[in-house]
Design a protein around this nucleic acid. Structure first.
Length: 856
DNA sequence: TTATTGCATGGCA
DNA sequence: ATGCCATGCAATA
């Protein structure tokens, strides 16, 4: 690179002593301009100054202002009008013509530094000014089983772009936008020139495949359009992007689609070729273009395609879908299958905007047969139709059952729709929401909730479990190897088809079927909790272990809840399952905790907020490097230890000590790992139809309800129960605690009588309801031969991970004792201790489990 | 009786 | 307040 920089403006080329930033180039860098050029740019006079004689100047349809539309510099100074022509951005804003230039990215995406002239614009959310993006439904006869001819109206702009980052994508989009125009210059320029006033409208472009002005001079104007672009409409050999065409009109004022040869295009997302130009949905708007249907002054808000329908398809998969080099794959949208969708009824409810944006317009409820290919190339024909619904329409795809079954999809899985050009084929892909435990070992995410990988659903649920994808879609960030490794061997879909989806998708998946709808014919608790014996894993934990393992969630303060005089240390969030530790207060008053090394059994002092995996050793003592070896001495003296660790806990500790030899104890710890792993599975495993697949929020703790939500202790956010609440849950809690306390008192007195006797720890451990299952659930817990253990029922395929106490009779007072865990004056209970919502994190390469709410 | 179809309802964003 | 959409459900096959 030359040491002497010159002004990026080719018409200037002044040496730069101090450069100023101009427009953003396709490389992501900004054009370095000299002071003079930069000033011109900032003042919006750059093109006037330097490109006055270049082609591409057009007049604003409203104010007549001349704008150099063919230039990257003025890229955001105008919008294309659906009916043709342009409007300067000022007028566009005034008249609420907020539709951006098709397939153009939000300016904020690729113009992080905007000149002053655009600041007001850029400060607005692009959604306010644009419903840009979605590919309009391009008449693609091949999609119709009854059609044979192929539309010729598909201008595509081939480019080669390396896309490796978001910014690259942005750049790609930028290229696309430019190329979209560039393409127009090729074959039909002459025709366009006959058009009046060289009007260049989105629809014109889309429908005619060229623009109304000569873009060939863009080089002069420093428009950074790849020169390798093909200008030939038919030359797709280097295609990477394209711009789909709609020959169909938008919906009318009533949003009812209709056929029109001259209407404005439907929403137009960037078309993706061999490289993914990841539209993020912000550019997607399923809202049909409204220009023709509404007056200019229409201020009706433009809704956009909901994020949950944004296609998250990845370039690799796009490539796979598109198959051959000439294909351009456009991700359209995706939808998580609801119970209804995945049910036997065979109807997939389509998001209205998606249906109207991406599927052919239908005027009759009967609709049209729609040919869809899966990623295997197998063709399916669905009936795309609608039902009148509240003065609107409800679009469905009928006859999807065979396809759904072929893909082995269940509610919660995601189906994706893409289009392959130039064929115009609709391709249906899918992502499974399920994941097998074996796939999960390396994919945990950090338990620290600050981890970026922990995402929140719209309902506020925190999820972090990675998920597995199957089918033709791949999410970013997962290597093909991982995908292959995670392939479900039993699936007819090959490893190549299997990939993973992002956490975000998982979020949606789980939140979707976690919620419950009343009277769901598919959801019955008995079904949900049906124990499939062969799939049931029992975890046996003493209640002390359980209490110790259930750590308060991070960053979660406890509330003290009193139920019949008993105090609960209640946490809004779900507990974390990890290695039991002993909380203590240092002499200085600071809170600490003591944890025992798995290998040497020495106790190490840790910060109070440290969360340990179920297996933890000195080597992982990152808090105290001096004691990160087992050879390091233990800080605690025997006396201190004696004080800290009460008999029962010592016993429990001892139990851990013998873990490596004791099958039962080993099982306990293994069970934790299993719990963690299973939680992932549970996270991803599609719930059986009976238990999942509802998306309606269940009211929190509905008295009398025995659903998975309501069997949890009533507390947490939302209406809390009164102390004297007589609902079944509160009654049960009371009963259990009365039982427990009487046991404790009894044990205490016994202990005092035999204070020197070291009892069998198991005999000392009172049963303690880690959870508070209702009777029905209790029945489903497999009774343990050991009455002093807590049964943790993990229903693998049923996706119920229940950590339930052993069934017991309330009047059954078994032996119990105080314990380390019970040194706390309160017991912990976790509001979000839903049994179906366990969440797994990985911390320091170890698994931790965390409960996740099963409803919000 | 069962499956399918078409519409209605109501939760929710 | 409005529209979407998941699902219930009656009518129909």
């Amino acid at each position: 690179m030359s040491s002497t920089k010159v002004c990026f403006n080719s018409n200037c080329k002044d040496a730069l002593d101090r450069s100023r930033k101009g427009w953003r180039r396709r490389t992501g860098e900004f054009a370095d301009l000299c002071h003079r050029c930069a000033s011109a740019y900032d003042e919006g006079k750059f093109c006037e100054t330097f490109h006055l004689n270049a082609s591409g100047w057009r007049c604003c349809e409203s104010c007549g202002k001349q704008i150099h539309c063919g230039c990257i510099v003025s890229f955001h100074m105008f919008v294309l009008l659906d009916a043709g022509g342009i409007e300067c951005i000022t007028c566009a804003r005034k008249s609420f013509i907020l539709t951006p230039n098709p397939a153009w990215p939000p300016p904020s995406l690729f113009l992080p530094v905007l000149p002053e002239r655009n600041k007001d614009l850029s400060s607005k959310n692009w959604s306010q000014i644009a419903g840009s993006g979605p590919v309009p439904w391009r008449q693609a006869p091949s999609l119709f089983s009854s059609s044979s001819a192929q539309s010729d109206l598909q201008p595509r702009m081939p480019f080669e772009v390396d896309i490796r980052s978001g910014s690259d994508r942005i750049i790609s989009i930028e290229r696309l936008s430019a190329s979209s125009f560039e393409r127009k210059t090729g074959d039909k320029l002459a025709e366009r020139l006959t058009n009046d006033c060289l009007k260049l409208g989105a629809s014109d472009i889309l429908e005619n495949g060229n623009a109304g002005f000569n873009w060939a001079e863009q080089a002069n104007a420093r428009v950074n359009v790849p020169q390798k672009s093909s200008f030939s409409k038919n030359d797709t050999s280097t295609s990477h992007f394209g711009l789909a065409v709609s020959s169909l009109c938008p919906n009318d004022a009533n949003d009812q689609p209709k056929v029109s040869g001259t209407g404005a295009p439907r929403p137009t997302p960037p078309v993706i070729g061999k490289q993914f130009c990841g539209h993020n949905g912000a550019e997607l708007s399923g809202e049909p273009q409204i220009r023709n249907g509404r007056p200019k002054g229409d201020t009706r808000p433009r809704t956009q395609l909901l994020p949950r329908y944004w296609s998250r398809i990845h370039d690799q998969e796009l490539q796979k879908i598109s198959g051959h080099s000439n294909s351009v794959c456009t991700p359209l949208f995706e939808k998580m299958l609801s119970a209804s969708d995945a049910g036997r009824i065979g109807r997939l409810v389509l998001p209205k905007k998606c249906a109207e944006a991406y599927f052919p317009p239908i005027s009759q409820p009967e609709g049209l047969p729609l040919k869809v290919e899966d990623s295997k190339g197998k063709e399916w024909i669905f009936q795309f139709r609608f039902w009148p619904n509240n003065n609107s329409r409800m679009y469905v795809l009928e006859g999807i059952t065979p396809c759904i079954q072929s893909m082995q999809l269940q509610a919660g899985d995601i189906v994706t729709f893409s289009r392959i050009d130039p064929e115009g084929k609709l391709v249906m892909g899918f992502r499974k929401a399920s994941a097998s435990p074996s796939d999960q070992g390396n994919e945990a995410v950090n338990a620290k909730t600050g981890d970026a990988s922990v995402k929140k659903t719209k309902a506020g649920e925190v999820l972090s479990t990675p998920h597995q994808l199957k089918g033709c879609l791949v999410s970013p960030g997962i290597s093909p190897i991982d995908q292959a490794n995670s392939a479900d061997q039993n699936s007819p879909w090959s490893k190549d088809d299997i990939s993973r989806c992002s956490t975000e998708e998982v979020v949606g998946a789980k939140s979707s079927f976690r919620t419950k709808r009343k009277n769901s014919t598919l959801s019955s608790k008995s079904k949900r909790l049906r124990v499939q014996t062969e799939e049931l894993t029992e975890l046996k934990l003493t209640w002390e272990l359980a209490q110790g393992l259930f750590r308060p969630p991070p960053n979660c303060d406890s509330n003290v809840v009193v139920v019949d005089g008993f105090e609960f240390e209640e946490y809004e969030d779900a507990p974390i399952i990890g290695r039991p530790t002993i909380l203590a207060t240092e002499n200085a008053g600071g809170k600490i905790q003591w944890a025992q090394c798995e290998d040497c059994f020495k106790w190490r002092k840790l910060p109070a907020d440290a969360f340990l995996p179920s297996r933890w050793t000195c080597s992982e003592n990152s808090w105290d490097p001096e004691r990160s070896l087992c050879s390091a001495t233990q800080e605690l003296t025997a006396e201190q230890l004696e004080y800290l660790i009460p008999t029962s806990t010592r016993a429990a500790s001892k139990e851990i000590k013998v873990t490596k030899r004791d099958p039962d104890s080993d099982a306990a710890l293994q069970a934790l790992d299993a719990l963690a792993n299973l939680a992932i599975q549970e996270e991803g495993e599609t719930l059986p139809e009976s238990s999942q697949a509802t998306t309606t929020k269940h009211p929190r703790h509905r008295p009398g309800c025995t659903c998975i939500v309501c069997i949890q202790p009533p507390s947490g956010k939302g209406p809390k129960h009164e102390q004297n609440c007589t609902c079944n849950i509160c009654s049960m809690v009371r009963r259990r605690f009365q039982t427990l306390m009487s046991r404790r008192e009894k044990k205490q007195s016994e202990k005092e009588a035999e204070k020197n006797s070291l009892q069998n720890p198991e005999q000392q451990n009172p049963e303690f309801p880690v959870m508070f299952p209702d009777d029905e659930e209790i029945q489903l817990c497999t009774a343990s031969p050991d009455e002093k253990t807590v049964n943790c029922a993990l229903q693998l395929k049923g996706n119920i991970i229940d950590l339930n106490i052993q069934p017991e009779r309330d009047d059954e007072v078994s032996s119990g004792s105080d314990s380390g865990g019970m040194r706390r004056s309160r017991m912990r209970r976790f509001v979000r201790g839903g049994t179906s919502g366990m969440q797994v994190y990985q911390s320091l390469s170890e698994w931790e489990c965390r409960w996740r709410p099963n409803t919000t």
